[in-house]
């Protein structure tokens, strides 16, 4: 078990947030044998009396969290994103339906998770959780934003699912800009003119890189970190489409049901706008290095640039 690192992966931000949230006695952490990976291990080390180990049993973990929530606790349960899906019905029927506020974190989300192979690469988690009424769904892009958003869950009124990532990513926020971060309010990372790139998770820094490159060609793209997939920040989207001729969405997630889908659903029924969705096409991954896999499925800076040029 390593200490929380600075400039780490979003899962490090989650772990750091739990430690700070421990000051509130209502906070309880639940684990299913992956605390070292999801980073709830730091909370466990400091507060074993408020950490509940359920073993490799995700369905039980989620339902235990529901029971804790019903008795006034604020439970934070985590496992790999993919294994959380095993407890989808427990989240749907046991947590969200009765209106209980429990928080689920799925780490190692996305195809970039890498060499473990396709069984560990959740590319549908954001899609399935956002279908649950009243559920907040988030996918922060770096450790600072993951920490800030997790901290805000302490007094959040809805159950939530947060996807964190395994790998370190460059920080998109600093100690000042992070103060503006709010659940449900997307962050404008880069101002532009006529195109908007809306991204989440590990793809946000690639979106910024692409926008920086494009500016040298005279194409000025906004870059938005849509860390909250649900509720969607439609206010910002409305503002963007009033000046932009098109939107490029970028996510390490299936193009079916994720960030791109949710923006398309909104705009197609309000202000039809040209959208290019960059994500994992309808396919599974395989073993490989993170960057190799992202390249394999077309989640690259070059592809984002090309999509913007074509738009």
């Amino acid at each position: 078990m390593s200490a929380p690192s600075s400039g780490g992966a979003s899962r490090d931000g989650y772990g750091a947030a739990l430690l700070e949230l421990a000051n509130d006695p209502r906070v309880v952490v639940l684990e299913a044998d992956l605390g070292k990976s999801t980073k709830s291990c730091h909370f466990r080390a400091e507060h074993p009396e408020r950490t509940v180990s359920l073993g490799i049993a995700e369905q039980n973990m989620v339902s235990v969290a529901a029971g804790l929530a019903s008795c006034g606790k604020v439970p934070f349960a985590s496992t790999f994103a993919i294994f959380s899906e095993r407890a989808f019905e427990q989240v749907r029927n046991g947590v969200a339906r009765p209106g209980l506020v429990a928080h689920l974190c799925g780490s190692h989300g996305g195809i970039h998770t890498g060499t473990d192979g396709s069984s560990a690469q959740s590319i549908e988690d954001l899609a399935i959780y956002r279908t649950i009424p009243g559920m907040t769904v988030m996918h922060p892009c770096d450790d600072l934003s993951a920490k800030a958003l997790t901290m805000q869950l302490l007094n959040h009124k809805s159950p939530s699912y947060t996807r964190t990532a395994r790998n370190k990513t460059p920080r998109m926020y600093d100690e000042d800009t992070i103060k503006e971060l709010k659940i449900g309010k997307a962050s404008m990372l880069r101002e532009g003119v006529d195109i908007a790139i809306i991204a989440c998770g590990v793809m946000v820094h690639k979106a910024v890189t692409a926008a920086n490159n494009l500016s040298k060609e005279g194409i000025h793209a906004y870059v938005v970190d849509m860390h909250t997939i649900k509720p969607l920040d439609t206010e910002l989207i409305n503002k963007l489409v009033s000046t932009c001729k098109g939107i490029v969405t970028v996510e390490d997630h299936s193009i079916i049901g994720g960030l791109g889908s949710s923006i398309s659903e909104y705009l197609s029924t309000t202000k039809p706008t040209k959208i290019t969705m960059i994500g994992v096409e309808d396919r599974f991954g395989e073993s490989g290095g993170s960057e190799e896999l992202l390249e394999l499925v077309g989640l690259t800076v070059e592809r984002i640039e090309e999509a913007c040029r074509v738009l």
Binding site: A66, G67, L68, S70, C71
Partner: peptide, 8 residues
């Protein structure tokens, strides 16, 4: 499982 949460 829910009852375990209550008991905890």
């Amino acid at each position: 499982s829910f009852g375990i949460g209550c008991a905890l």
